[in-house]
Design a protein around this nucleic acid. Structure first.
Lengths: 134, 134
DNA sequence: AAATAACCAACTAACTTACTAGGAGTTTAT
DNA sequence: ATAAACTCCTAGTAAGTTAGTTGGTTATTT
């Protein structure tokens, strides 16, 4: 029951982008890798996911790199975590589409626990934005 | 970011014990295994942990088995989850002793997120007791 | 004594995590 | 034009975890 290094490294990289947001130049993975001491090739995997979830924009070629798609205030931690770790499901029975309950056993009382727990987690993670971490 | 089948099977087994609590006879792993369709040898591993955390008592020999150490009202879900999955830590920096923050980087802003998240999870899981699941 | 139970240790297949390797395509400075 | 500096893409892999199985030993009741 732990978030992985994907979240750890992803958040570090995203805060680096947020800090870099003042000047209009994109930040390359090479630079992020050096600054945050994360393997560049591993960062690549993470940025594929971040881009697919429209959290960052890429600029190819020389002096290219990545920029945030929106301002740090408009990006919450849950978005980043879910982009990197995949859809949140605290339990097997919660792994349905769009966070809906997948299992449909009537009268299952434990489902209430997981449902409330999952909603709380999402609410907490949505409360914080990238701007709060800079 | 999921609880494993340890929690799934463990909760099923514990509710089975709770239901059995009316009569004074212990419930054997063989019976739990049949009722809940869980491998008996896997159940053994789980009950080692449940007993070590003083959630169940064992009675050896013929017509032996397991009983709850306390009444279902006095056993909350967090206790069971932590007994089976180990100490809760949503993040590496939270994996200190007794839920204390392990990492001591000053001014780390993400720590605030994990700290609040973890407290919320524990609070939610403590709110529900085994009696709520029967 | 025999049956039934908990208890214990070691092993294993499948899966996930956290990477690395090697390249293909794109853009820009020279 | 071309080389460098980038992103982008696919595949593989070592280490660790999960979800078990196998084969026994010890304790208690009938």
């Amino acid at each position: 029951m732990m978030f992985t290094t994907k979240t750890e490294y992803g958040l570090k990289a995203m805060t680096a982008l947020a800090k870099n947001g003042k000047n209009n130049n994109p930040l390359s993975l090479t630079e992020i890798s050096k600054k945050e001491h994360i393997s560049q090739s591993y960062l690549e995997h993470l940025f594929v996911k971040l881009k697919a979830n429209d959290l960052v924009k890429s600029i190819k070629g020389v002096s290219g790199g990545y920029k945030l798609s929106r301002s740090p205030k408009e990006i919450n931690i849950f978005e980043i975590v879910e982009a990197l770790e995949g859809p949140l499901a605290v339990f097997y029975c919660m792994a349905g589409e769009n966070g809906k309950v997948a299992c449909s056993v009537n009268g299952c009382l434990t489902k209430k626990v997981w449902d409330e727990l999952q909603k709380n987690i999402i609410k907490t993670l949505r409360k914080f934005t990238l701007a709060n971490l800079v």
